[in-house]
Design a protein around this nucleic acid. Sequence first.
DNA 1: CGTCAATTTGATTAAATTCAATTTTCGTGG
DNA 2: CCACGAAAATTGAATTTAATCAAATTGACG
Lengths: 224, 224
Amino acid sequence: MLALIDTCHATREARGNLCACLEPSRIERLRGVAGDLRLGPGDVLFRAGQGADAVFGLRQGVVMQSRRLADGRRQVVSFHFPGDTIGLTDDTHGCEAVALTRVSLCRIPLAALDEDPALAAQMRRIAERALASALEHALALGRMTAAERVCRFLLETWRRCGRREELHLPMRVADIADHLGLRPETVSRCFSDLRRDGIVGVLHPDGTLELPDPGRLSRLSGQG
Amino acid sequence: MLALIDTCHATREARGNLCACLEPSRIERLRGVAGDLRLGPGDVLFRAGQGADAVFGLRQGVVMQSRRLADGRRQVVSFHFPGDTIGLTDDTHGCEAVALTRVSLCRIPLAALDEDPALAAQMRRIAERALASALEHALALGRMTAAERVCRFLLETWRRCGRREELHLPMRVADIADHLGLRPETVSRCFSDLRRDGIVGVLHPDGTLELPDPGRLSRLSGQG
DNA sequence: CGTCAATTTGATTAAATTCAATTTTCGTGG
DNA sequence: CCACGAAAATTGAATTTAATCAAATTGACG
């Protein structure tokens, strides 16, 4: 567990790591309450409607959060990558969280927040960032074309995964579609167009996609 | 100012009143730091990009928050009604906030949060609710038809305004359209259809709309 | 009463969905 | 290692929804 929290701390990013803000002494204290968790592809971290008594720091792997309307229509709320904090909600989970790959998380009981004001403050910052990012996403859904949404998604994911040459996308096309408010066929067509124009490389069977020119993606994503 | 905070406290709702959670002694302390603010229609509370050093409790009136893409496309992020807390963000405002009516607010410096853990905790709850509501909205934008979005908007606004027989809608059709990711013409057509079917009454010149049967609206809003 | 802006309504167009068919990928077992 | 079957992704054609363009109506305000 010691190693776990250290790794969690090492992954620190401006984005939203719960431990990122804490001084060593605080982290020391956190060790006592944080739990370890490992999941495989398809495993459920929590379900919609379930009570929330902890948040999770994602160390390794990719997690997807989604909601459903009664008639089956699905909205994929977010994809999470290492360093992200998952499970932030008001007493009851509104979404279901599923692992898309092998995943390793550390579990932080909400009770720990009441005991540590610095942790609670960091939690608020994370909630604020999540809110800002949800509003950005709403702007994309409400005001961007299909092509723009796909470009923005790739660009955003690229940024969040460390701006490497290649992107690892373990989710299915249908998941991306439900994230962007589109149909899988539409997402597929957008990918094909981007490939044809040389803006993205081929999508390898393992989910790896090459991004030769993120700058061009940016221009196509409606002033991202 | 005393009366202001009392009113703010009196407006308490489960929804998101900053003062709602506080015991009288806390509120007493808040009096020392909270400021009063009054705006008229069209006045700007804050702009996008501006640093955020305070949040605002809305006592009276309606406030609209919006963002813009570089090419002019606009997303109306939210409408706020009495009892709401406005201005929650990560250090810099991502939206512009404008008064749609005469508005009265109390201003709470963020510094006050550092001094009062209970206030900070309430702030976190408010951020979490705002996040949940932003995700709901994203679901609507991504997965609902134009008619469903309009019904959901009316229903949601009706709930937030105290479930009265009539609804006060001081915003323009274009504002609702930019909120729902639609064009004004489309929103207008949806309203006309609802009127034709007797689901809403006439929209009076002062912005008042009668809602004879919220239950039917609910059924039309995609399992709202 | 006249002007301007906002809304409403109508006709046409464009974008994305839907339906359908084909190809590719992936897991399983021979 | 290769063949087979199921699931996913891709591509094509038709349809639907909402956007766009355009005109008429309504309402606010001097």
